[in-house]
Design a protein around this nucleic acid. Structure first.
Length: 885
RNA sequence: GGGCGGUUAGCUCAGCGGUAGAGCAUCGGUCUUACAAACCGGGGGCCACUGGUUCGAACCCAGUACCGCCCACCA
């Protein structure tokens, strides 16, 4: 078997197995067993894989592979999102490079071009997911602008319209003057920016002085239609209802009483601009104020602003107006001020609140059942804390602006007749039919991207048709997603699922960790702090990337991921080393299988301690890993497997059984040992497979096994009959003894090659038997040539001595012993034990400890205390003996 | 302003009531025929701070500090 490379080479195996799995149809549901289905969060169609995606979809694949092995009928539906603004921005950027604009091109040509781009370059991210090893059903791939998907979107709109949830309204919305569209509240980001606070004097019409108002946006004063103060504000009590003259403009505006004005802020009076501020808008409605729009969709002052401001950019206008106000002597003061500023989440242009006609969805009633299902625990969040986040938002939900002034997206299915009547229909044909012979015109706007993704779980399964998939795989089992789209997406899926399917779309919502850069900040492509997962795969292989992410992906705790520097990424390297360890341990096993065809992966019963122990450890591992996966503690599953495989299997079991397993004889005993080691390895590989699919398949195929692929091999099951506490305890003693001898050798500088003699003394007959039975193991692993076992250690002139687990250890070192060193070593040992004893004693001395602590704990403490005291006593004697030397 | 996380070995992070663990780094020793991407051994921590609950706290409670997120109409 010299053809097995010394190191695992991921690239040669990954493509091979992915194609094999796919071609054999393993990614498709089996149609048998209980259902386990997931629809993935659709990435942007123009996007490319970043490390957060890698984590997200790796988690998907782990769960799907695990459930598949458990015998579930598993389905994972992949797909992409048309991502309205994001995609349109990409195309517009291209156009501007060519000196074009979408308006120059026209709607139809722009859409042609976008489709062309999407068809050609879109979905690259899905091929990247294939490199990640994702076992998704690619035949069921969906896109939010697929013909069938569009039907779902239209159906939703029509039904909601008919039920009265959708309405058109004139409101102040968040407008992005760069994207030239409305955006919803949750697509706005807020940050503090350094600017000024301007205090302006608005004089009373009757010449009786003035009111000072504070504003961060003086340019909007051209649209002011009132000044408001709090009704409880003494300073204004007698002034409400008086008329003010708006400087520059000269118009007359009232001083009104409204509690939205905060008496503590500035002078307590606030100017009211209903067309350019959402609060002012609300106040305007309350007081029936005119709405004067002075800024246009490009962020420029419009006709109403009047000369000389018309045509100026809003920020130029600000300077101009401030200068003019200054000239009029109405500026009280200007202060430096950190202004909370709203920006577009997409392009970070400062949002212009704009009075505009948009389509909205009335949310309150739709949200209620989605609140209930979470409250009742029918939809559970993992980690639990996100339940609160979700509920807080849902309970204060506001209406959803769903229209976008974009071209790329689902065009709003509303047609208007000449006399202004709305016709809402699922298609142009239906609309025409409804219109009869009246001419109609379709609304220019498209729907918010999230309007379509809100339907994802049932739409990808075929809704509104009653398809077999929909009947079978809805509701899905779990939604795995990032926390920043709980509002944008998760909440809306729950609402639409309940509304249209009368059933929750998924019962678990697993919010996975946010991947940060090495400084704990969000990874950002524009800052260049993003890591390309494909680069990582190139370097270390898919399994290493997956494992390194999984072992960190603790219960939603953020993880930091360092960039690749000088062709190295230490976090992934750790996982790569583990992969390599798996490879080499397997290599050892396979080397000893050569020419022994009859060896099977099966557990041949054995009385040997090592065998009983590893079987018990394996059993425990199966149990822990399975439980961890059930509870979405993927990091613990990974950690448990890492420890079992490396520490228990490699460092101890292989070493303990090596001599038999690699024996040249072909006896029944040797064959049995080989069967056992193959069994342990093969079972471990099955446990590891969901996390590291490629390496486990590659090795599994070279081992004796049943079945055609590890992917469809059964998930191991733990069994109470394989628990063996005694074996685990005894093995701990054996490990302690061997470690102690190695320790003496190392500390006393005894060359590794030299064979030692070992004296073991203990009054415990059971311990003597344990040592005796495993003398061969101790000899091999501690490099000892002879072991003498007695009830107590004999006098030894020059020897290193120690005591562990109540067992005295002596290593005669004629001529080799360095007495100073030995004294030092023993002293250190005594000190260590004394430290521990002190801690235990202080507990035992406390009378309430014995009284209140559980019996078990008290007994254990006493026992350990006594044992330590005896050990210290023995070591002291040894030390005294040494001091004469 | 409100809420949620985090603060544990030099670094990255586990642990979340019985007085601390891993990987990397470090120090010493090994090419012991599965693996030097490895093996063996060692050193390193008042578990951010202050109180409280408890027989017992890194772990529970209250507060403080710093870091990071989310929400919010203070012009």
């Amino acid at each position: 078997m010299t053809d097995i490379p010394k190191a695992y080479e991921p690239h040669s195996v990954e493509q091979k197995w992915y194609e094999t799995w796919n071609s054999r149809g393993y990614f498709k549901p089996s149609g048998k067993g209980p259902i386990y289905s997931i629809t993935i969060p659709p990435p942007n169609v123009t996007g490319s894989l970043h490390i957060g995606h890698a984590l997200c979809y790796t988690i998907h694949d782990v769960l799907i592979r695990w459930r598949r092995m458990q015998g579930y009928d598993t389905l994972c539906v992949p797909g992409t999102d048309h991502a309205g603004i994001a995609t349109q921005n990409v195309i517009e950027k291209q156009l501007s490079k060519e000196g074009l604009s979408r308006h120059a091109l026209g709607r139809e040509k722009f859409l042609d071009r976008t489709w062309q781009f999407v068809n050609e370059y879109g979905g690259v991210i899905l091929t990247q997911l294939k490199r990640l090893g994702c076992s998704f059903d690619w035949d069921r791939e969906r896109f939010t602008m697929d013909e069938n998907y569009v039907k779902a979107v239209m159906e939703c709109f029509v039904q909601w319209w008919e039920a009265g949830y959708i309405y058109r309204g004139n409101r102040v919305i968040n407008w992005c003057p760069r994207c030239l569209t409305a955006i919803s509240d949750i697509e706005v980001e807020r940050e503090e920016r350094k600017s000024k606070l301007y205090h302006l004097r608005y004089p009373f019409k009757d010449g009786s002085g003035y009111v000072v108002v504070a504003t961060t946006r003086p340019e909007t004063m051209l649209g002011d239609t009132a000044v408001a103060a709090n009704p409880a504000d003494e300073r204004y009590r007698d002034l409400f209802g008086k008329t003010l003259i708006l400087p520059i403009v000269g118009s007359e505006i009232p001083l009104i009483a409204d509690d939205y004005a905060q008496p503590e802020f500035g002078s307590g009076a606030v100017k009211v601009t209903p067309a350019h501020d959402s609060n002012d808008f609300e106040a305007g409605l309350r007081h029936d104020l005119p709405q004067i729009t002075v800024i246009d969709i490009h962020g420029k002052m419009n006709e109403q602003a009047g000369p000389p401001y018309t045509g100026l950019d809003r920020f130029e206008a600000r300077e101009r107006i401030v200068a003019d106000l200054e000239a009029l002597g109405v500026i009280e003061k200007i202060e430096d001020y950190d202004v909370p500023t709203a920006t577009c989440a997409r392009c970070h242009t400062i949002i212009e609140p704009l009075l505009s006609e948009q389509w909205f969805v009335r949310m309150k009633e739709l949200a209620q059942p989605a609140i209930d299902v979470v409250r009742e625990g029918r939809v559970k969040f993992v980690p639990e804390r996100y339940e609160r986040t979700y509920l807080d938002w849902m309970e204060n939900i506001r209406d959803w602006t769903i229209s976008r002034q974009l071209w790329w997206g689902h065009r709003i299915p509303v047609w208007t007749t000449e006399d202004g009547q709305y016709i809402v229909a699922r298609s142009q044909e239906e609309a025409l039919a409804k219109a009869g012979d009246r001419p109609i015109k379709q609304d220019e706007d498209v729907l918010d991207t999230w309007f379509s993704s809100a339907l994802w779980p049932h739409a990808v399964l075929g809704w509104p048709e009653r398809t077999a998939d929909l009947e079978h795989y809805y509701p899905t089992s779990v939604l795995i997603t990032a926390r920043d789209i709980i509002y944008l997406w998760v909440s809306r899926m729950i609402m639409t699922g309940i509304y249209f399917k009368e059933e929750i779309p998924f019962s678990d919502v697993y919010i996975y960790a946010t991947v940060l850069d090495e400084h704990g900040k969000r990874q950002s492509k524009s800052l260049g702090t993003g890591v390309d997962p494909l680069d990582v795969i190139e370097l270390y292989g898919t399994d290493a990337l997956r494992f390194s992410l999984l072992i960190r992906a603790a219960r939603g705790q953020d993880i930091r991921f360092a960039p690749i520097r000088e062709k190295r990424q230490p976090q992934v390297e750790e996982a790569r080393n583990f992969a390599n360890k798996i490879w080499n341990a397997s290599r050892f096993v396979m080397m000893n299988l050569a020419g022994a065809e009859e060896v099977r992966s099966e557990w041949v019963e054995s009385d040997a301690l090592a065998d009983r122990w590893i079987l018990a450890e394996l059993n425990e591992t199966i149990d822990e890993v399975t439980r961890a996966l059930e509870e979405y503690r993927l990091n613990e599953a990974a950690q448990t497997l890492y420890k079992f495989f490396w520490d228990n299997f490699c460092d101890w079991y292989i070493e303990l059984t090596k001599s038999v397993v690699s024996s040249r004889e072909d006896t029944a005993e040797v064959r049995a040992a080989r069967s056992r080691i193959v069994y342990i390895l093969e079972t471990s590989l099955r446990l590891l497979h969901p996390l590291m699919p490629y390496i486990t398949e590659e090795i599994w195929q070279r081992l004796p096994h049943r079945g055609e692929s590890i992917m469809v091999a059964p998930w191991p099951e733990a069994s109470a009959s394989r628990e063996d506490r005694k074996a685990r305890e005894q093995m701990q003693v054996l490990i302690a003894v061997i470690t102690k001898v190695r320790n003496i050798r190392s500390e006393m500088n005894i060359p590794p090659q030299s064979r030692l003699r070992l004296h073991v003394g203990t009054s415990d007959a059971g311990a003597r038997e344990l040592i005796n039975k495993n003398a061969g193991q101790i000899k091999r692993l501690a490099r000892v040539e002879e072991i003498t076992i007695s009830e107590a250690l004999p006098e030894m002139k020059s020897a290193a001595r120690d005591i562990v687990a109540g067992i005295e250890i002596g290593v005669p070192l004629e001529g080799l012993i360095d007495f100073d060193k030995e004294r030092e070593r023993i002293k250190k040992e005594i000190e260590r034990k004394e430290n521990e004893t002190r801690g235990l004693a202080s507990r035992l001395d406390n009378p309430s400890f014995a009284g209140r602590a559980p019996r078990e704990v008290v007994d254990q403490t006493r026992q350990r205390h006594a044992e330590l005291r005896a050990e210290i006593e023995k070591l002291r004697t040894t030390l005294t003996g040494l001091s004469g030397q």
